[in-house]
Structure formats: structure tokens, C-alpha cells
Simulated scan of single mutants.
Amino acid sequence: MFAIPLLAVTFLAAPAENELVERIERLQLQNGMFLDRTSDRTTVSSAATGMGSYALAYAATRGLADGAEVAQRLELAFQITTQANPARNHGWLAHFTDTNGNPKPFSEISTIDTALFYMGMQKAAELLNLPHLQQRIEHELGKIDTSFVLRDDKFLHGFYWPEGNNTSDDAQPDFIRHRWADSSEGVILYKLFNIEFEFEIRRVDYPLFVYLYPLMFFEDERYVRLLSEAVDFQIAEYGYSGVTATDGPHGYTIHDRNLISPLLLSAVGSRFPAALETLQKYSLDPAIAAYYIPSGWVNSDDLTIDLASAYVMLVQWKGYSHREDLVTESAPTATR
């Protein structure tokens, strides 16, 4: 299956750590918030701010980012995000905001993106030993009205305001009626609020990221098994793995069997070596965030959540155990 020892493949199948950190840093604004993507300098993502902050906190602990600067921006981003959030949102955050934290008129108020923001901030503050910020995070978490979006003990996906930011004070939101009740990233919400959760629907055919995100924040054997089974499912169904939600040739794509993420595979492969077979099969550079198999299209527009999630998992799963070798090691045949 592999022409060289598997351990060596693991090292070769990871992007250079310093380069990946630099890509994440380019997505951060001076106020600590993170852009959704490189090409749009006007749109911040709450999930991206949480996950990007978590990633740079890890980089700081590994000598690849200035710890004092990361901490300062972390606190500023948390302050701006929470203070700009309108009271009518009951503490829940808009997925997309402007660079000052004001919700974009088109954005949903998203339960999962709120969870990713707070979980990322918690983990970053813990890594950098910032007890004051940890207390502020707990204080703001206590102000979130969970009952506003709980139905039958399950969280809704979120809600919209019918007229965007021009809604009157007595307006009612349009709720997104889908519930986080399945084997997806929704478990993060329940962990954040210390609510017991058992999924009602178990599936392994979702985009791969949904099984990876929970493992960024906690070790849960259910999701370790789900991720392993999801990789195996994709290999059996498609002949390769790495199918996920990311940018494709025609914009952001939730599910297309031809759209894979070499970067995600490099992270998953640091724990589940079967994921690395796809990188070898197509001679892919693991630094590539998205690759479209039929045409060979490669994404050049970085998304913070893609880079940050891969970096966190590469660090946690020891994909960068020998960082000095990774920085100088040449990558597989590039297709960028």
C-alpha cells in the first residue's frame, strides 16, 4: 500500500507547521477577530474567531507565535464580540459579523457557531493560562439563554431576524427548526453547557469535518469511532476519503463526493493512517485546503476554520511531534 514506512508517510503528509501558522495569522485582524476567508476583508466569522484563537494559542505554546500578542488579541476579540452582540439575541452569536462585531444582516444567529466561539476561547485561555479571561468567558456563558433555543431537550440550529438588523424591538425571530440531535458536531453545544446528550440518529456519511470538530475540544470515544468509521465509509463508497464541506469550484459546498480536503486528511491521517492513502493516490500537497478531483481545481482562498481545525488536530494528535523535521522536510508532489 505504501512504498515507504508508514511513520515516514505521516511526517511527509503534513504541511510545514510554520507555514500553516503564518496562513492562520494572515486571517487575523489587529483587533484579534478572524476573517471568514482571505478574499473577504469585511466579514468576520464568530466560529473562525474561536477556532483561530485556539490555533494561535497552540502556536504560541510551541514557540511559533508571540504569546503576549496572542493573549492581548484574544482578550480584545472576546470583548468586541460579546459587547457588540445585540441583547435580543439572548447571548447567541451571529455566524457572520463586520470587523467590529456587528451582525451581518444576512447572517443566522447560530447555536453551533456560538459554541465554537466559546469553546475555542476557553481552550485558548487555558493554554495561555489567562485566569481573568477564563472568568470573563464563564460570566458571559452564564448570560446565554439556552431555553430560548431548546426544544424537547435538543438545541435548534439557530434563528434569523426577518428584517436583518432593521427589525423592531417587538419583532419575533424565525427559528431554524432543525435540531442538533444526530451524530454530528452538535455535541459541542451540549458539552459547552454541561448537558447530557445522546444522539437520536447515528450516521457516518456526513462531511468529514463534523466528526473532527468535537475532537478538537474533548476526547470522546464515540466520536473517535465515528471519525474512523466515516473515513472507512468514504473509502468503501468512493475509493478515497476526505470528502467534506469546504470551498469548491463554484463556491462553498456542503457535500460533493468529488470535493476533498488534503489538509483535513493530513490532520485525520495523524491518527487514522488510512486517510493518508488518498494523499498518496492523487500525489497531493497536504497544505491544500480543497481539491476537486475531476478537474484538478485547487482552492487558493483560505478559510480560517479549515486551517485552524487541521492545525489543532495535527498538534494534538502528534502530527508535529518532530517539528524541526517537518519545517525542513519536503512535501509530496505538489499540485498547488
Rank of each mutant, 00 (worst) to 15 (best):
1 M>Q: 11
2 F>E: 05
3 A>Y: 02
5 P>A: 09
5 P>V: 10
8 A>F: 09
10 T>H: 13
12 L>W: 13
14 A>Q: 15
16 A>L: 10
17 E>G: 03
17 E>L: 01
26 R>P: 07
28 Q>M: 09
29 L>N: 06
36 D>M: 10
40 D>M: 06
41 R>M: 03
41 R>E: 06
49 T>L: 01
52 G>F: 01
54 Y>W: 03
57 A>M: 04
58 Y>F: 10
61 T>N: 00
67 G>F: 15
68 A>Q: 13
68 A>Y: 00
70 V>C: 04
76 L>S: 15
77 A>K: 01
89 N>D: 05
93 L>Y: 01
94 A>M: 04
95 H>C: 11
95 H>R: 13
97 T>M: 02
97 T>N: 03
98 D>K: 06
99 T>N: 06
103 P>T: 02
104 K>Y: 14
104 K>E: 14
110 S>K: 09
110 S>I: 03
111 T>A: 13
112 I>Q: 10
114 T>W: 00
115 A>Q: 06
116 L>G: 01
116 L>V: 00
119 M>K: 12
120 G>H: 00
124 A>P: 12
128 L>C: 12
140 E>K: 09
145 D>E: 04
152 D>G: 00
153 D>P: 00
153 D>A: 10
154 K>E: 08
159 F>E: 01
159 F>M: 08
162 P>S: 08
168 S>R: 10
170 D>R: 03
175 F>C: 12
177 R>P: 06
178 H>D: 15
186 G>Q: 07
186 G>Y: 00
186 G>T: 02
187 V>C: 08
187 V>D: 04
189 L>E: 05
189 L>N: 09
190 Y>A: 08
191 K>H: 14
192 L>Y: 03
194 N>D: 15
195 I>T: 12
199 F>C: 02
204 V>D: 15
207 P>W: 00
207 P>R: 03
210 V>W: 10
212 L>A: 11
213 Y>D: 07
215 L>H: 04
218 F>P: 00
220 D>S: 13
223 Y>I: 01
223 Y>T: 07
226 L>W: 08
229 E>A: 08
230 A>Y: 03
237 E>M: 15
238 Y>R: 11
239 G>L: 04
240 Y>N: 08
243 V>I: 14
247 D>V: 09
248 G>D: 02
249 P>M: 06
251 G>E: 10
257 R>M: 15
258 N>I: 00
258 N>Y: 05
259 L>P: 07
260 I>F: 13
260 I>K: 09
261 S>H: 05
264 L>K: 05
265 L>H: 05
266 S>L: 03
270 S>H: 02
273 P>F: 11
274 A>N: 14
275 A>T: 07
277 E>Q: 11
280 Q>L: 10
285 D>G: 12
292 Y>S: 10
302 D>A: 12
304 T>C: 02
305 I>P: 09
307 L>G: 05
308 A>D: 08
310 A>L: 08
319 G>W: 10
322 H>F: 15
327 V>R: 12
331 A>R: 04
334 A>C: 13
